[in-house]
């Protein structure tokens, strides 16, 4: 055990302040300290992506980031992506296209997909498969996940194109 550090960060818009050891992992902070249990632990080696959250605008595997590294950061988890009364189009699309089975990867999968669609609002199938390669699903074989993301992108673009003309196209970052 070593000395505790004072950490402040914001999760889903809410400010949090606590003392934690330097070795405390961000996923532990979220799940055990803040009771945010949407992100899951699958591998603890940043391969599976079940713990994916957004930290300051980037997809992050929270099982391999220390809480101290998130000092001052703004974090979004699945709990901050939609509400029961107003689901994110991805949440609707995953339900509609059977993009999940056991549900364990789903929070990380949707959180990553939301970021992917921000980075690239109209991805090709290949770009989706590449951009989602850091998130493992053991149940679906990905076919319906890809379909869900395509459907959500189409839905988001059709509701956006009514208000704005050009849809920005950025290069998709590879998930690791």
């Amino acid at each position: 055990m070593s000395k505790k550090t004072h950490i402040t960060l914001k999760v889903n818009g809410k400010s949090e302040e606590f003392l934690a050891e330097p070795r405390e992992l961000l996923i532990y902070t979220l799940r055990e300290r803040l009771n945010i249990t949407g992100p899951h632990i699958g591998c603890e080696t940043s391969h599976c992506g079940a713990c994916t959250v957004t930290v300051d605008g980037k997809s992050v595997k929270s099982c391999t980031m220390f809480a101290v590294q998130a000092e001052g950061a703004e974090i979004t988890t699945i709990e901050g992506i939609g509400t029961p009364d107003s689901l994110h189009p991805l949440q609707e699309a995953f339900k509609e296209h059977h993009g999940l089975q056991c549900g364990y990867c789903t929070p990380g999968m949707i959180t990553r997909a939301a970021k992917l669609l921000e980075e690239n609002p109209a991805p090709s199938e290949e770009e989706i498969r590449f951009g989602m390669a850091g998130n493992i699903c053991r149940c679906t074989g990905y076919q319906n996940i890809v379909k869900s993301i395509q459907a959500a992108a189409a839905e988001m673009n059709s509701s956006q194109s009514s208000s704005s003309e050009a849809v920005g196209h950025k290069t998709t970052e590879a998930a690791e």
């Binding site: 249990t37 949407g38 709990e79 939609g82 029961p84 689901l87 549900g103 929070p107």
Partner: peptide, 15 residues
């Protein structure tokens, strides 16, 4: 459509 999906897609599964 699956009735399970509402909780799983919103991070409200209970594992």
């Amino acid at each position: 459509k699956r009735v399970e999906d509402a909780r799983f897609t919103q991070g409200k599964g209970n594992y």
